[in-house]
Design a protein around this nucleic acid. Structure first.
Lengths: 207, 207
DNA sequence: GCGCTTATTGGACGATTGCGCAATATCGTC
DNA sequence: GACGATATTGCGCAATCGTCCAATAAGCGC
């Protein structure tokens, strides 16, 4: 429990902006994106609510920035680990392992909120779309590299990436939103199996 | 433009309840589930807002009821048409044709809202889960009947139904929430192709 | 130490939210 | 035609929302 390094009463604009986003993330983790308010964020920081609007034009921007931090961090972690892989197949294994974090349901709930709020909050829609595209790009790139060295077979890397990602999202959605008969284990098993079939890999290779 | 049949000033409880739900659907179609308010519904009906609370305990219940009507109607239409099919494969063809209605994006936006709001509104979560399960049941039943008469091959009808449904949802999500590079045509083509592979059908049969 | 810049405060503002309740209007029944 | 049941009104209530703004105070260059 390391205390934040002796917060000065007055922070540099860059630091403050970062602090606001961090506080927003913390609140959104507990309450979801859709019901995170300016006052929640201010209270979390221990400052006034007016301060938030000194750095952000609207709440839409604040939420979008917070969502971007969370989503981009997960993306960065996956991308970094996949980058160290010595083969496309190994990278894919890492992808499935990091994309389905058992203890971070709240992050996926943020995605659910972002997809729904996209219709009402332009900034949230823009970042949600951007991040989704980047995830697809990461996956597509990995597939392409595997096709290049013939370690896997795929006539349509871009489409395959969308299909794998969407199946994963659709299944995870059921777990997080409903807690249905679909289990976390099903999500992993079914999506990896689908990817193996999609990429001409033998069954179980991505397990 | 047929005027509603001479609304009496005082309606029977059953009719009024129905009218409230209908008005809620109309508002939700325009504004989404998440931002539909008691006063919106009252204004849509041309009545007072207090009336809504005379029939529903909370707004959560109203929204859940409205969502259920929309989702159940789509389900009923699909189920009815599929019931008239003379083969499992034909039923599946109907399924894909009716599940992806080009001109009704707002209905899918309601699903997005429901999935996100599920974390905050118990009644919405309950109906969202229930309806999702029924869609899965419909699809699973169709697959089972096809397996029974050997018109298709599937070792795991329940899982297959979840996978097909989730892929469809995940792809449609991209179209509705983001309007990304994924097109409506992609959604249909990709999900039918996945289903054909999943069910041991030759390519293009479900197109 | 002085003064300018600006980070920060703290509350006001108007709009909006879900919900509750007493008063009123309307209907079916005798 | 009067009565009882109840559908409906219309507003009030307390809480909350995002946004804005004048006042305050902290830090930096001189």
């Amino acid at each position: 429990m390391a205390a934040p390094p002796a917060l000065p009463k007055r922070m540099s604009p860059a630091d403050r902006r970062e602090a606001i986003v961090a506080a927003t993330v913390e609140v959104a983790r507990r309450k979801g994106l859709a019901s995170t308010t300016v006052r929640d964020v201010a209270a979390e920081m221990g400052t006034s609510s007016g301060l938030i609007h000194h750095y952000f034009e609207s709440m839409d921007d604040v939420l979008a920035a917070a969502f971007e931090v969370v989503a981009r961090q997960d993306l960065a972690v996956s991308a970094a680990l996949m980058g160290e892989a010595t083969s496309a197949v190994e990278a894919l294994r890492i992808f499935f392992r990091t994309y389905t974090p058992a203890d971070k349901d709240w992050a996926f709930q943020l995605w659910l909120d972002a997809w729904a709020e996209a219709a009402r909050r332009p900034a949230v829609q823009a970042t949600s779309r951007r991040l989704n595209l980047e995830w697809q790009g990461l996956l597509e790139g990995t597939i392409r590299s595997g096709v290049a060295d013939a370690s896997l077979l795929c006539p349509d890397p871009a489409g395959a990436a969308w299909r794998i990602l969407s199946l994963l999202d659709g299944l995870a959605l059921q777990v997080v939103a409903h807690g249905t008969t679909v289990t976390r284990a099903d999500v992993v098993a079914w999506s990896t199996a689908a990817a193996e079939r999609e990429l001409g890999l033998s069954a179980g290779v991505l397990g």
